[in-house]
């Protein structure tokens, strides 16, 4: 079982130099062939989690453990981490317009990534780039490779971004809100592509704030609230029967697309606490409708059912 875990974050804690904890306690697993959806409200720490895995947060102090293919990443020299970045693990970003360098053709930027990690000639790199773009469903990939980012539509840009991320055959693909800047019909295209990538055996970590996107593309989900993972489990089970009160509230707040129209949508009162003002006990306590005295001690993320973990006193035996 453990052998196939690709990425394992264990009590990952990230703080500013002044001691403010941005990530309090993030634990999650991604296995090969799995897609883990990381959901949560804006500012909950989704992107920070992704960036720490990539080792792109110099200046922030990380503790805990990040294991990738059985190897501890925290404390790794930047030179070694760099060898992993782009080759062992790759990342795509929310806005493919700004994520590409505007002044170079996308082909050149993909070639660059290939040549950063492998000793191949320019010609070979370009051939691979074109093949990749074609596989990502970019029409006329040879011409597309010569275009500049602003000359492509948002959907094609994101395909090119994914092609670049996959160019060195990474075992883990991290996608930070890859469809937020896209239209729904284009989003559907990109999500379909991500599903294919997952089925081809790579591990995927998909960061989003859209539960629908998670349901559609992921096998597992981790819910982040104010720098902590509060629930993790298989998507179908969590969607059908969310355990943590926050997950429940999050799912209820989505307006339904069929069935009767509710008079008012259930809402969550208040807003997430800022990183420097987290409550002592359960971080969700100020907004939780089930809050009770023993919530004043912060509950740990525990396995309560086969494959399902939750951090809430309601499920303490």
């Amino acid at each position: 079982m453990e052998a196939e875990v690709l990425l394992k974050l264990h009590h990952l804690h990230l703080e500013l130099s002044n001691g403010t904890a941005l990530l309090e306690d993030v634990s999650l697993n991604v296995r090969r062939g799995d897609a883990l959806g990381v959901v949560g409200e804006s500012g909950s720490g989704k992107s920070l989690t992704a960036m720490s895995v990539m080792g792109l947060l110099p200046g922030l102090r990380a503790s805990g453990s990040i294991r990738f293919e059985g190897r501890e990443l925290l404390g790794l020299k930047d030179r070694e981490w760099r060898r992993l970045r782009g080759a062992g693990m790759a990342m795509i970003f929310q806005d493919p317009m700004t994520a590409f360098l505007p002044v170079r053709s996308i082909g050149a930027q993909i070639d660059e990534q290939i040549r950063l990690h492998e000793r191949v000639s320019r010609r070979e790199a370009r051939a691979r780039t074109v093949a990749l773009l074609g596989r990502m469903g970019v029409p006329d990939p040879e011409a597309a490779a010569k275009r500049y980012p602003h000359q492509l539509s948002g959907g094609l840009r994101q395909r090119a971004m994914i092609a670049m991320a996959l160019s060195c055959g990474p075992a883990l693909l991290i996608a930070d809100e890859p469809t937020t800047a896209l239209d729904v019909t284009v989003q559907a295209q990109i999500l379909t592509l991500l599903c294919e990538i997952r089925d081809s055996g790579a591990g995927v970590m998909l960061i989003t704030h859209d539960m629908g996107v998670v349901a559609q593309t992921c096998t597992h989900v981790a819910v982040v609230y104010s720098g902590l993972v509060v629930e993790q489990g298989p998507v179908a089970a969590v969607m059908a029967r969310p355990l943590h009160p926050y997950t429940q509230a999050l799912l209820e707040a989505i307006p339904p697309l069929d069935g009767p129209r509710p008079d008012a949508l259930p809402t969550i009162p208040g807003r997430p606490s800022a990183p420097d003002a987290r409550p002592e006990g359960c971080v969700f306590a100020p907004r939780c409708r089930f809050v009770r005295p023993d919530c004043a001690v912060r509950p740990a993320l525990r396995e309560v059912e086969e494959g399902r973990r939750v951090a809430c006193v309601l499920y303490d035996a």
Binding site: M54, L56, R82, R83, L84, R85, G86, A87, A90, M91, F93, D95, T98, A99, F100, L101, P102, E112, Q113, L116, H117, M164
Partner: peptide
């Protein structure tokens, strides 16, 4: 953002 991408590329 594009600099972040460059670093993510390795």
């Amino acid at each position: 953002d594009s600099i972040r991408t460059a670093r993510a590329k390795g």
